[in-house]
Design a protein around this nucleic acid. Structure first.
Lengths: 206, 206, 206, 206
DNA sequence: AAATAAGCGAGACGGTACGTCGCGTCTTTAT
DNA sequence: ATAAAGACGCGACGTACCGTCTCGCTTATTT
């Protein structure tokens, strides 16, 4: 979000702390009802009980606002230890899918990613707010699996980073594609099939 | 696209045949320069040397126009026989990535998919124009691999369809995510790693 | 007002002829109800049953619009022959005062003159639309008075022009000041006194 | 201006004496540079090195502030005895014109008068601050002329008051109109012609 | 000295209007 | 019937000031 020199008691009236929360909540609400393209900042301001100018004082436009509103949704992602790599993957994939199934995430995330194809600052914001946070889950899952002996320990650290990126693209990409492009649900059956291929490969005897 | 009673010599001035092509080309050009959100139909019309009315006579709005403009990009996808399943996958993934690397595809495809999250008619149009065509490649690749003996023959046809969908989501999803979200190139090294996991799984000894 | 290459049948939809009239009428109406400073172009557009953009297509802002709206009020000024110079002056002064007494003129004229102190283009527009038209009345009155023998004929043309300007400033200035600054009515008694001084001077035996 | 119970030593920090002067000076400065309509109170505050709140504590809005700022300009008007009525008139008219020639007066005075057409309180303020002060000059000039024998003594006091008002409207109106509407200078030649007509009338042999 | 009270700077706040832009429709003349 | 041209109603945009409201701080008078 926006930041300031942290604990410097700056002069003048401080920004309303409640306004931020109200605006983000209103944004998600509007996202559900209207979708990205019909969402207007004036409407968000009204819903939040806030003047349009207040909104523009904090965010520079629709994109930045929606990134922040959507990013909060992903804060709840976590990786409880379910005892095996397969179970861990299935768990986090289902969590991720549950978030994507919510209408505010569906349209909002995609729209923001779309805009980011032309806007480097926005891409950086997304990466910082959303992507990197999730990538931590992949790291965590792998080290657990290594402790359990399900995966061999790392040798080449560069190779290791590449693999994390790859896994992340495969997991997130598949779930997003299933949900948003194919438009079909990520149910337990699908997750089982996916995990199976991810772990054992297409050529393995099912 | 738009259709008419096909060969009925209707009265009045016939539609300009060149206009369609000019408009689609102008759309892709504008997509490259401006991106989805800054693309305006008035601008496309001007670039195409065409009046706005002409454009609206053929497409009902921005989304429909861009779908058609982007769909043409995927016509070139094909699956030449490279002798092994792994080589076939690598080939088609690189082709797909090459298309996505073009700026008119990056923004256009995503934008259209984004809009489709709220518009069923648009989703159907996308499925017909883009998705189903690619899914055919997966089918073709599998049957070739089965003929070579790399994969076992199908038994349950329903299970078979599910697997095709799953593979498709995994391949397309990973490439799209790598390109558009992670914003990193799909190069040969990445493709090799991806194919390795897809075929043999994470747990295989590399 | 705005002008075009006159009788050239230009391509495209022509501007609505009724819109101009509706807008100017709405402007005067709003001027009466709200006064200059509270008059809003959006409101004028609404009253006129016209989009705000249509209004901006024809006038570049509040000032230009109000000048035109107010200028029309002065079209009705004329100088009927009342038989003597004194009677002619009294007649036209009363007419002028009657216009200024109308609320749309009071605020509108002054406001526009005020703005013109900083805007040369606007001043030119006012001069062309309002001032020069009235100055013709002074000329007409003088030549009639000369024909009647009430005033001597002109000799020096330059001196003549200066005198017209002077008379005009004295007549218009006095009426405007009485109405708008002193805020008192221009009634018959005032007009008689004014005409007396204008014709015979302060020092004349009353 | 603003008033307080005069010499009551009230508790709390007293108002800064320098702030008033700084604000009025800043107002005139801004009036010169920007004109009435582009003058903003925020900008005036900044120029004066003062917070907006300080400004609002002293004046209730733009109009009141500008009236005060402009009124000060007219304090310098006076009527030195030049020996004859004609010379006295010429003197004061030139003084008045010199003030109106200053840009802060041009826009400011007119703007304030314009606003006053809708605001009775403002009109009263103007009358008290500006108009009545000038009207005193007319009275003074007349009594001098009567002492010199240039004008007959008053008989009817009501008629007398009416004439003062009339003369005032004629003098002030003509100068203002010449300066602000006609937009031409009040030079010595113009003043001579004006005084000639005012004293001897149009029909007098020049 | 401490308490109280107002003034002051800074700047965020809810509003209103601005002038612009793009949409998709409609109206004109010319093919 | 289509085409190019362009005006139209509409609605959102992002900005600028308005006049008000907190803040933390300063400067007086009153206890």
């Amino acid at each position: 979000m926006q930041s300031r020199s942290p604990s410097a008691a700056r002069p003048g009236r401080p920004r309303s702390a409640t306004a931020d929360a109200a605006i983000l909540a209103a944004t998600r609400e509007a996202l559900v009802e209207l979708g990205w393209s019909k969402l207007t900042l004036g409407d968000v301001a009204t819903r939040a009980g806030v003047a349009k100018t207040t909104l523009y004082r904090r965010w520079s436009g629709k994109n930045e606002l929606v990134v922040d509103a959507v990013a909060e949704l992903f804060d709840e992602l976590c990786l409880p230890d379910r005892g095996s790599l397969a179970a861990d993957i299935e768990g986090v994939v289902l969590q991720f899918a549950a978030i994507l199934a919510r209408p505010e995430a569906r349209g909002g995330l995609m729209a923001v990613v779309t805009e980011a194809t032309r806007d480097d600052a926005l891409r950086a914001r997304i990466r910082a707010s959303i992507v990197d946070r999730q990538k931590g889950l992949v790291l965590q899952g792998r080290s657990r699996a290594q402790q359990r002996g399900e995966l061999p320990p790392e040798t080449d650290p560069e190779e290791s980073a590449r693999t994390v990126d790859l896994i992340f693209d495969m997991v997130a990409g598949a779930v997003v594609h299933r949900t948003l492009v194919s438009g079909r649900p990520v149910d337990e059956e699908w997750v089982r099939g996916f995990t199976q291929i991810l772990l054992r490969g297409l050529t393995a005897p099912s």
